[in-house]
C-alpha cells in the first residue's frame, strides 16, 4: 500500500519457467520415456517366441512330420496322428459351437429382454475367463467317466465349450452394429422377424461373425489343457473314430517336450512351428481386416 513494488516476478519469468525447478519437466520427460520403453518391452516377447520357434522348428519341419505317425516303438516318424486329430476335433467343435454361439447371440441382441440378456452375457464373460483345465475336468465327468473311455468326441465338446462364449460375444457385438433401419425396412415389407434376422441382420453382421468364429477356431486349435482328460492323445492315427482317443498338435507338443530325448524335443519344435504358423496366420488375416476398417 505504501507504494512498494509487489514481489511478483515479471511476466517473462513466469512464462519461461524460471520460477519452478526443472524437477517437474524432468519427471515428465523421463516417465514418458519409461512408458515408451515399457511398450516396446511388451513387443519383445512376441519377437523372441517367433524367432526361437522358427529357428528350432524349421529344421524339424519335413513332409514326414505331417504324413507319418510316430513309430510304435522307439524314436522317429512324425506327427500325422496329431495333425489328423486336430483336423477332426476342431471342425467338429466349430460345428457345435458356431451355431450355438451365433444363434445365442441373435437371441441376446434381437429378442431377449434386457435382464436376461445381461444374465446370459455375464455368464458368457465368466465362461471366457474360466481356466481351461476346469473345462477338461468338467467334460471328463460326464463324457468320459460314465463310459470309462477317453474319446475324441469329449475332446471336441471341451473345445466347443471354450469356443461358444467367444463366438457369442463377438457375434453380439457385430449385431449391435447393424443399423436398426435395416430391420425396420425389412419388417415394413412384411418379411417375418425370423427371416429378417436370417437374411438381413445376420447377412449384414456376417464379417463380424466370421471374425469371431475364426478367432475362436484359432484359440481352440492351440488348447491343450481341456484335451488332457478327454481326447487324451494317441500315438496311432485315428481317422473318424470319435469314440476312441485322439491326438492333437498341442498334445503332441506337450508330450514330446517332456521327453528326455533330443529327437522328440525336435519334433515338438517342429509341431510348435506348424501350430504357431496356422494360429498366427488366422489371427493376422482376421485382425488385419478389422484393423484396416478401423484405419480406413
Amino acid at each position: 500500500m505504501t507504494g512498494a513494488v509487489i514481489a511478483q516476478p515479471s511476466m517473462a519469468a513466469r512464462l519461461t519457467g524460471a520460477r519452478v525447478g526443472r524437477r517437474r519437466t524432468v519427471v515428465d520427460r523421463s516417465m514418458r520415456t519409461i512408458a515408451m520403453g515399457a511398450a516396446f518391452l511388451c513387443a519383445l516377447p512376441l519377437a523372441a517366441v517367433l524367432f526361437f520357434v522358427a529357428a528350432n522348428g524349421l529344421s524339424a519341419l519335413s513332409l514326414d512330420l505331417i504324413t507319418k505317425p510316430p513309430r510304435a516303438l522307439g524314436i522317429g516318424g512324425g506327427a500325422a496322428n496329431a495333425v489328423v486329430g486336430t483336423l477332426q476335433m476342431v471342425p467338429l467343435a466349430a460345428l457345435i459351437a458356431v451355431p450355438v454361439g451365433v444363434l445365442g447371440a441373435v437371441y441376446i441382441a434381437e429378442f431377449a429382454n434386457s435382464r436376461s440378456a445381461r444374465v446370459i452375457r455375464f455368464c458368457a464373460d465368466v465362461l471366457v475367463g474360466m481356466p481351461s483345465i476346469l473345462i477338461g475336468v468338467f467334460v471328463f465327468t460326464f463324457l468320459v467317466l460314465p463310459f470309462k473311455q477317453f474319446n475324441g468326441f469329449a475332446g471336441s465338446v471341451a473345445l466347443a465349450v471354450i469356443m461358444i462364449p467367444v463366438v457369442m460375444r463377438t457375434t453380439e457385438e457385430s449385431l449391435h452394429l447393424v443399423p436398426n433401419s435395416l430391420r425396420e425396412a425389412s419388417l415394413a415389407l412384411g418379411v417375418p422377424a425370423w427371416r429378417t434376422v436370417l437374411s438381413v441382420v445376420l447377412r449384414t453382421g456376417l464379417p463380424g461373425i466370421l471374425t469371431g468364429s475364426m478367432l475362436a477356431i484359432a484359440r481352440a486349435m492351440g488348447e491343450t489343457a481341456p484335451l488332457l482328460f478327454t481326447a487324451l492323445g494317441s500315438r496311432v492315427v485315428n481317422v473318424g473314430d470319435f469314440g476312441r482317443p485322439m491326438d492333437s498338435l498341442p498334445l503332441f507338443i506337450y508330450v514330446n517336450a517332456r521327453q528326455p530325448v533330443d529327437a522328440l524335443n525336435q519334433q515338438a519344435w517342429g509341431a510348435a512351428f506348424l501350430l504357431l504358423l496356422i494360429v498366427l496366420i488366422i489371427n493376422v488375416a482376421v485382425r488385419a481386416r478389422s484393423w484396416g476398417r478401423r484405419i480406413g
Binding site: M11, A12, R14, L15, T16, G17, R19, V20, R24, T25
Partner: peptide, 20 residues
C-alpha cells in the same frame, strides 16, 4: 503477446503459460 511477451516464443513453456 501477454504483457509484451510473445507466448509462442520458444522459451515460453505452455505448462507455465497455463498457470498465468
Amino acid at each position: 503477446t501477454l504483457d509484451g511477451i510473445d507466448i509462442y516464443r520458444p522459451d515460453v513453456d505452455p505448462v507455465q503459460l497455463r498457470r498465468v
